[in-house]
Amino acid sequence: MTTITPDPVLTAAAVARLASVWKSVATAEEVGPVISCVEADTLAAVFLAVGDKDSAKAWISEHSANDPGCEGHDEGHDEEPLMSTTTVVHALTCTACGSNGVQPAVREWANCTNCNHGMSLSEAMTCGCDGYDCVPRPAAPYAPEPGEEYTYPLSDYARATARALGAGWDTESSYLGAWGLIFTTDVRVSLRLYVDGEGSTGDPMIQDRHTGDEYLVPAERLPEGAPRTKDEMHEWGKALALFVLSLGL
């Protein structure tokens, strides 16, 4: 694909020419009511780019006052633009290359400045606005299938820990594997592995069942992310076993 680098001098001249041709108040009165909100804001941005605030306000005014589908535009102050071109760019995403460099064209069409792909404006939309006042769409509810978010119950973590500790250690599972016991076969050490349901982060905890003492397992001593394979669970078991041994019980 051939990449075309815009000439800044020619671009500035073209913008100035466009503003000069479209600055007519009569044209604004005739065309303003029938163009889309995105088109009105884009024209306003062209006028602002050449310092013509009056024409920008005139186009927005004619469009807003006469388009029954328009919900209004922020006309701003003399020191501020009528629109934010940044929100336009970031409200749209190319359906071909995924770039945010998408600009509205005519009517309900948009073009990608990165790969030159054309698409309808609705296809490119990644927010809940019309491309000029970006409001993110509510995220779809997170509803993973059973076993998709967490592959193993907590009792499996306890079992992996006992295996890593070696001979003389055993485990028992609670109902549904909600927590697990880790203990020596002579019951000299008896620990409960569970998750702190009252804490702010839901950290793994180990409780000495003889004394009632509780120990938070630091996140930095654990593998990153919940295990999804036997090998990953083995690494978790080794990390938890090292923490148990560090307690000196």
Results as ranks from 00 to 15, higher is better:
residue 100 N to Y: 06
residue 75 E to W: 05
residue 86 T to M: 15
residue 71 E to P: 07
residue 159 R to S: 12
residue 90 H to N: 15
residue 138 P to K: 00
residue 130 D to T: 13
residue 70 C to F: 09
residue 172 E to F: 13
residue 124 A to Q: 03
residue 58 A to P: 07
residue 59 W to G: 05
residue 85 T to W: 09
residue 157 Y to C: 08
residue 72 G to P: 06
residue 79 E to I: 08
residue 124 A to D: 03
residue 67 D to K: 15
residue 149 E to P: 03
residue 139 A to S: 05
residue 163 R to F: 10
residue 89 V to S: 10
residue 135 V to H: 12
residue 171 T to N: 09
residue 108 E to L: 13
residue 67 D to A: 14
residue 83 M to T: 06
residue 171 T to V: 09
residue 65 A to F: 11
residue 66 N to K: 06
residue 164 A to Y: 08
residue 174 S to Y: 06
residue 123 E to P: 01
residue 155 S to I: 02
residue 119 M to N: 10
residue 169 W to G: 09
residue 142 Y to P: 00
residue 113 T to R: 11
residue 87 T to D: 15
residue 73 H to K: 05
residue 59 W to T: 14
residue 114 N to L: 00
residue 101 G to K: 05
residue 113 T to I: 06
residue 95 T to R: 13
residue 70 C to P: 12
residue 105 A to S: 09
residue 84 S to Y: 14
residue 82 L to R: 13
residue 87 T to Y: 14
residue 154 L to G: 03
residue 94 C to Y: 04
residue 95 T to I: 12
residue 68 P to M: 11
residue 75 E to C: 14
residue 143 A to W: 00
residue 132 Y to N: 06
residue 64 S to L: 09
residue 158 A to F: 05
residue 149 E to M: 06
residue 96 A to R: 11
residue 77 H to C: 05
residue 106 V to S: 11
residue 59 W to L: 15
residue 134 C to E: 13
residue 98 G to L: 01
residue 92 L to H: 03
residue 101 G to S: 02
residue 162 A to C: 04
residue 140 A to E: 08
residue 155 S to E: 10
residue 161 T to C: 10
residue 163 R to Q: 13
residue 135 V to D: 11
residue 106 V to D: 11
residue 91 A to T: 15
residue 95 T to L: 09
residue 111 N to I: 05
residue 120 S to P: 03
residue 147 G to W: 02
residue 132 Y to P: 01
residue 124 A to Y: 03
residue 89 V to H: 07
residue 89 V to R: 10
residue 170 D to N: 11
residue 119 M to P: 01
residue 173 S to R: 06
residue 139 A to K: 00
residue 68 P to F: 07
residue 69 G to P: 03
residue 65 A to N: 15
residue 124 A to L: 03
residue 160 A to L: 04
residue 123 E to Q: 07
residue 160 A to W: 04
residue 70 C to N: 10
residue 86 T to C: 08
residue 137 R to G: 02
residue 139 A to Q: 00
residue 103 Q to Y: 01
residue 101 G to D: 14
residue 86 T to P: 02
residue 87 T to L: 11
residue 139 A to F: 00
residue 122 S to R: 10
residue 106 V to M: 09
residue 162 A to W: 05
residue 162 A to Y: 01
residue 146 P to V: 06
residue 82 L to F: 13
residue 125 M to H: 00
residue 71 E to A: 15
residue 160 A to H: 03
residue 113 T to P: 00
residue 150 Y to S: 08
residue 108 E to V: 10
residue 97 C to P: 00
residue 158 A to E: 06
residue 112 C to A: 02
residue 130 D to L: 09
residue 65 A to Y: 11
residue 140 A to T: 03
residue 78 D to L: 13
residue 62 E to C: 12
residue 117 H to Q: 04
residue 145 E to K: 13
residue 129 C to W: 02
residue 111 N to V: 14
residue 107 R to P: 01
residue 160 A to P: 04
